[in-house]
Amino acid sequence: MTRRRRKTYSGPPSDHFDGQKFFDPDGVSPKSLSDLLRWQFGGRRNRMVWPAWVPSPHADVPPREVDGGKVRLSFVGHASWLIQANGLNILVDPVWSMRVSPVSWAGPKRRNHPGIAFEDLPRIDVVLVSHGHYDHLDLATLSRLAKNFDPRVVTPLGNDLTMREADAAIRAEAFDWHDRVELGAGIAVHLVPTRHWTARSLFDRNQALWASFVLETPAGKIYVVCDSGYGEGRHFRRVGEAHGPLRLAILPIGAYEPRWFMRDQHMNPDDAVKALLDCGAEAALGHHHGTFQLTDEAIDAPAEALVEALDAASIPRERFVAVKPGQVVEI
């Protein structure tokens, strides 16, 4: 029996696509399999064990829609958000599954309920999916959304093939870095470069693209970074220069230990504070922490380290807040 070859993106070479794989001109290649094995089984691993279940004290039942020039952001958990404005309901990297893994019986398991119960979702018009890693591109959730709401799904090049191959009902539309996509109701999204990579297996690294998002909303521009390393900060400065002023930045603060392995793909809180200053956003919300244990730090370490990093940089703590599932922010 032969293994069916998965369809992959095909297109002209560019400054970030060599004809076969995508790359970040300002980034580095992902760690090798031998590095992964060294981290997992090297003998000096300092992995903090998370509690089996840590419920959030918050839960949200969002309104059917939000109008009047206001933007309502509800944190679902990890990197999943519901953003409502001008009657449009947008989900970012939606994950309602219990595990983020190629299989349902193993892999990182959810440690708290989604901040919004799936049954309490309003009509979903648009879904933004940043890249193909399992904690961001959840096919089970996308299929469920397609069945219930039939939303547009906007994603970087190549991830649309993964979605449609799994479920033809997923209305995936693929775009490149720097593309601007009209979402309706006066809202648009820009796909912007981010320092990361992607894969669904050991054999398809960087055969699809990854991106962050800049949303144009009636309350200002919102910079949504679902996953990123910091590097030299070029990506964040360029977004600030090209799209500023930014009203809000949503920045990842978790999944960063050990640094020798994670530095190039995930920011720690110190990096996230630098990213805030680089992009120049008025305020920031910290996410990508506290729901799935992907790395070695303790469950509460990112939120605690964020406060320390803000104090060290003399930035008011209220400018950059680590949120928990079910919390709501309005601008």
Rank of each mutant, 00 (worst) to 15 (best):
E330F: 03
K109S: 07
D300F: 13
T295E: 10
V127E: 04
R238G: 03
L285T: 01
R6M: 12
R317G: 12
S228C: 07
R110E: 02
V214S: 03
T2V: 05
H266N: 13
P302R: 08
V214N: 04
S201L: 05
P55S: 14
T291S: 11
A283W: 03
E241H: 08
P258S: 05
T198I: 03
V189R: 02
D93I: 07
P30F: 03
I331F: 15
E282K: 14
K109V: 06
R247V: 02
V127L: 07
G42W: 01
P269S: 11
G77D: 06
P325E: 02
R99Y: 02
A249G: 06
L73E: 00
M262V: 01
V273P: 06
V153Q: 06
P12M: 09
H16A: 05
G68K: 12
V61G: 00
D160P: 13
S10M: 07
S14Q: 00
R205Q: 06
R38C: 00
V321G: 03
H58V: 03
S34I: 12
F41G: 02
R123K: 11
S56K: 10
V126T: 11
W39R: 15
D167P: 01
A303S: 06
K324P: 06
R152F: 06
V129H: 04
P316H: 02
Y134V: 05
R205G: 10
S10T: 13
V49Q: 11
W81K: 09
M48S: 14
G107A: 12
L73R: 11
V129L: 00
N148G: 04
G184D: 10
P12D: 13
T217Y: 08
T141R: 09
S97Y: 00
N268E: 14
R72L: 04
T2Y: 04
R234Q: 02
F75D: 06
Q20A: 11
L121V: 07
K109L: 12
P108G: 11
F236A: 06
R45D: 07
L248S: 01
T162S: 14
E173D: 14
P55E: 15
L137V: 01
L121N: 01
S34R: 12
A199C: 08
E308D: 11
P62T: 05
A298R: 11
H196F: 14
R47E: 10
R180H: 02
F22S: 00
S314A: 12
P252S: 14
G229Q: 05
R195Q: 12
G184A: 12
V95C: 10
G231P: 06
Q327P: 15
I116Y: 07
A242V: 01
H235F: 08
V154T: 08
H266F: 12
V100I: 15
A275P: 10
A298P: 13
S74A: 13
P245V: 05
